[in-house]
């Protein structure tokens, strides 16, 4: 399996590695990392910077007897394996499992347009993450975004403005982007999308669909 060609912007990887990224965006990044060795190496590098920084910080004394108190709390030997995960969802990267328990087909999908279904999987004050399921050969009406959106392929693929997005690839759309993605004609497309602002539809069909298509 080849690595993805389209990656998250560097500053998103940085925010993930330093610990300042919100939950919905972290879900997208962690899922991408499962599928992308290049970005895993980037994040390991950012974490190594964090290690260097931690090592070089001027120490702040702990309270009297802190070590002794911690020592009394070391219950049992260190664990040899990871604590049990949420139940696995076959064919999906592990970071998604807690958000799609029971499997992709069991999610409460809602139809938002012809051949297009979506379900929100994580919502926070900063961004929302949703899964999008698009039937084969569907063209999503031309639309723009009030803020930013990142869409990553989990299964199948889509094409937009001459570029083809396959598993793990991320399309980054900003306020200036007006696009018209089309799902793969054979397999359709299952995506994870993170939006940090409402979407704005352009074009006649877009305007007609706007009330129904909460993309």
């Amino acid at each position: 399996m080849t690595c993805p060609s389209y990656h998250p912007p560097d500053e998103m990887l940085m925010a993930y590695g330093t610990g300042s990224l919100d939950e919905a965006s972290s879900l997208l990044i962690a899922t991408h990392l499962t599928l992308c060795r290049r970005c895993r190496i980037e994040v390991e590098r950012i974490e190594a910077m964090g290690g260097g920084l931690l090592d070089s910080l001027a120490p702040e004394s702990l309270s009297e007897g802190a070590l002794a108190r911690v020592m009394t709390r070391l219950d049992g030997p260190p664990a040899r394996s990871r604590p049990p995960q949420t139940a696995a969802v076959a064919g999906m990267p592990a970071p998604l499992w807690p958000y799609i328990a029971g499997g992709v087909d069991a999610l409460p999908w809602r139809r938002v347009g012809p051949g297009i279904q979506q379900v929100f999987v994580a919502s926070g004050p900063i961004a929302r993450a949703r899964m999008l399921r698009v039937a084969p050969g569907v063209v999503i009406p031309q639309h723009g975004h009030a803020a930013g959106e990142m869409t990553m392929v989990l299964r199948g693929g889509f094409a937009d403005a001459g570029q083809t997005f396959e598993i793990g690839d991320i399309e980054v759309a900003g306020p200036e982007t007006i696009h018209r993605p089309a799902s793969d004609p054979e397999e359709g497309c299952l995506c994870l999308a993170v939006t940090d602002g409402p979407l704005r539809l352009t074009g006649l069909l877009g305007r007609l669909l706007n009330p129904f298509l909460d993309l």
Partner: peptide, 9 residues
């Protein structure tokens, strides 16, 4: 959400 280095995917 964290990467699992043992993920079969």
């Amino acid at each position: 959400p964290c990467l699992d280095p043992d993920d079969p995917m």
